[in-house]
Amino acid sequence: MDLIRLGQVSHAFESAHPVLDGVDFALRAGEKVALLGANGTGKTTLLHVMVGLIRPRTGSVHAFGRERRAEADFVEVRAKAGLLFQDADDQLFCPTVAEDVAFGPLNLGKSKAEARAIVHDVLGRLGLAALENRVTHKLSGGQKRLVSLAAVLAMDPEALLLDEPTNALDEATRERLLDILAGLPQAMVIVSHDREVVERLATRRVTLRGGKLT
């Protein structure tokens, strides 16, 4: 079953230089797809198209059972496909770690008690229980990355879209994150230049070059 399916997606920020030029892509349940390509080839754009942060100029986005067009359609998609941003500072905006991790579940209509339980559970699973009441902007870079992953997992997504997850992490944190990712059951699209990430996690590789996916 396809979780996400893109059909002939094209997009250009400036008409003269199309970033995506007729991309077909499908993410099936249980798959971990490495999305490769040089800098600036549109890998992040492609991830953003999947969750409707960028509406492509042409082409269709099918996700979780039906075609998605308007902003309202994508609210549900974003809950089911958790996007991990390149810069954790973009993602962690609440004062404390607990509030940030609870932000998604609360938006999904969970009660405060349920949200608290989820925060506890997710932070515990990732070995971050000690950070629960810390102030987000005082965390180290590695802690921020792990907490932002916890914030995504707290929404219990069916798929994960990871945008350079191990970028700028020290060796120990990188290993820890890799172990965590390897143990997750979700389907994934992984954008990474880190060879070990691709070799350890990916079940399939696709490369974006000149706006086409091969």
Partner: peptide, 24 residues
């Protein structure tokens, strides 16, 4: 640009304009 990325990240976690609160 940072503000736009933060907004995108918030929408990815189901933000639709109303802030929930975790306070008792």
């Amino acid at each position: 640009e940072r503000a736009e990325r933060i907004d995108a990240a918030m929408r990815c976690r189901g933000f639709t304009g109303r802030f929930p609160s975790l306070d008792d």
